[in-house]
Amino acid sequence: MTDFFEMGGYAGYVWSSYGLTTIALLVLLMVSLRGLKKSRRDLAHLETLLKSRRPRRKKAPVRQP
C-alpha cells in the first residue's frame, strides 16, 4: 500500500499529474453545468414574459440571428 502512494519516489510528480487533471476536468464540467442551469432559469423567465405579453403569437424564431 505504501508502494502505491510512494510511486517509486516520484509521488509528487505522479499524484500532482492525476490530481490536477481531475480538478481541471471537474471544474470545466461544473462551470458548464452551472452555466446551463442559469441559462435555463433566464430563458424560462423570458418565456413567461413573452407569453404574458403576446399570448396568441407562436414562438419567436429560435436561432436565425
Partner: peptide, 25 residues
C-alpha cells in the same frame, strides 16, 4: 458529455439574446 452541455447552454443563450433583441425582458 461536456460538448452536449455546452451546446445546450449556447442554444439557450442565443434564444435569450433573440428574445432580448425583440424587446422582451
Amino acid at each position: 458529455i461536456v460538448l452536449i452541455l455546452r451546446i445546450r447552454l449556447e442554444l439557450n443563450e442565443r434564444r435569450i439574446r433573440a428574445l432580448q433583441l425583440s424587446g422582451i425582458g
